[in-house]
Design a protein around this nucleic acid. Structure first.
Lengths: 147, 147
DNA sequence: GTTTGTGCAAATGCTTTGCAATTTG
DNA sequence: CAAATTGCAAAGCATTTGCACAAAC
């Protein structure tokens, strides 16, 4: 990947997670982690599956889904659902939390981060007496015409 | 429904929409609108289908999906997706815009409304030079233990 | 050697589609 | 009566599951 050295850390985080959970450190699990981290932005299961098939990895969709579940649990990967379509996954480590704008005409996905969401979160936690674990904020819109 | 008189307005909105689009005013379309407006909160397709079956309406799932599409387009109904599950629909008229908290342990869904989301929206519109049509904000969390 | 994890294929669950029969305008 | 809409059943997808085989520990 682009920055080899940083991936060693990621891999170490996953290794520690697997050990703590007494799960097996299979090559498939590491390859999937690596491919998600190689991906530019958001990647869906089908693309990932075909990508790995083309690279002659031996992976099944079942293993992809199973492993992704683990990567979500140890927070190395984040999952998003835009519209009705299939889920998208993206690396979470070394990448700050952000939300998304979905351009409904082109399908393009923009990222942004706004601190005010954090203050809304705090208010909601107080009002309902809950502990918020995560959030998702999506804006749907279209580019303005240049005129 | 609870407030018969207000439903006449809703029905009128739908009627106007159908006329403008030169679509046919079928009894199925009006019944579906009515049932969604009868529902307390969010309702999913399966529940709605069984509900209507039990009331001896003649409706198919296909018609439910088709009609719901129309109701979404004329903004009489809003659609939500929480987690990976099936979509939920709810009446939009006479009900202010709101966002959701999903309690991950119980599956309970709470509603809230926070004006700060509107200011975030305005910022995003400026920054990306886009026109935002709608948004969805979900918080995922759990109730705090009483201790 | 046990037990967990894997690939495969079949199953599931929500949603969409094709089509003949029906209904609206 | 022509065209749109319906119900039904079948098809589509993304995701999950069951199970025999393979690989970690």
């Amino acid at each position: 990947m682009a920055c080899e050295s940083s991936f060693i850390i990621i891999k170490g985080v996953f290794k520690a997670f697997l050990e703590e959970r007494r799960l097996r450190k299979t090559p498939e699990r590491y390859s999937i982690l690596e491919e998600v981290y190689n991906a530019k932005g958001h990647i869906d299961m089908d693309t990932l599956y075909l990508l790995m098939k083309n690279k002659n990895y031996r992976v099944s969709r079942a293993t992809l889904y199973n492993t992704m579940e683990l990567l979500l649990e140890c927070r190395l990967v984040r999952k998003h659902q835009f519209g009705n379509k299939s889920s998208y996954y993206e690396k979470a480590f070394f990448k700050s939390e952000h939300d998304h704008v979905i351009l409904t005409d082109t399908g393009e996905i923009l990222e942004f981060s706004d601190p005010r969401i954090e203050s809304i979160k705090e208010t909601i936690e107080e009002v309902f007496n809950i502990k918020i674990d995560k959030h998702s904020l999506h804006f749907y819109g279209e580019r303005k015409q240049e005129s």
